[in-house]
């Protein structure tokens, strides 16, 4: 696994060859609260950078999950669909949302690194 990069919409991405794994950040789960429903995209679906790709709902509200990178969905994580609470317990590990075959790797480089993302969160409290 390569280093993780982060989007302003609180998704993380890691890149392995031309396969990216996308999830939501710990910060995002803290803002959302208890996650009770997840919808992940079907394989084969193509997504654009910053396009809506998945749905996450907490007891409070529904939120869209965007793909920080363009490409074709390879797999959605069924285990978080079956047990959405796992997203709260391990958002940046086993509870990834989807894997995607990346169209343009340069999009990955435009995302924030961990330090920049932490700074972004501190400057933009919700």
């Amino acid at each position: 696994m390569s280093e993780k990069k982060f989007s302003k919409k609180h998704e993380w991405v890691s890149l392995d060859g031309d396969t990216a794994t996308v999830g939501i950040t710990k910060h995002a789960t803290e803002m959302l609260g208890d996650i009770v429903f997840v919808e992940v995209p079907e394989p084969g679906k193509s997504v654009e950078k910053d396009g809506q790709a998945a749905v996450v709902e907490s007891t409070k509200a529904a939120s869209d999950v965007y793909s920080p990178i363009s490409g074709e969905i390879l797999e959605g994580n069924k285990s978080i669909v079956d047990d959405p609470g796992n997203v709260n317990s391990d958002p940046e590990g086993v509870s990834w949302f989807f894997k995607i075959k990346v169209k343009d790797k340069s999009e990955f480089d435009t995302l924030m690194n961990k330090a920049d993302y932490d700074k972004f969160c501190a400057e933009n409290p919700s």
Binding site: G33, D34, S58, T59, K60
Partner: peptide
């Protein structure tokens, strides 16, 4: 207060 540290489910 909408919730405290434990969260809505707990």
């Amino acid at each position: 207060p909408i919730q405290y540290k434990d969260g809505i489910v707990k």
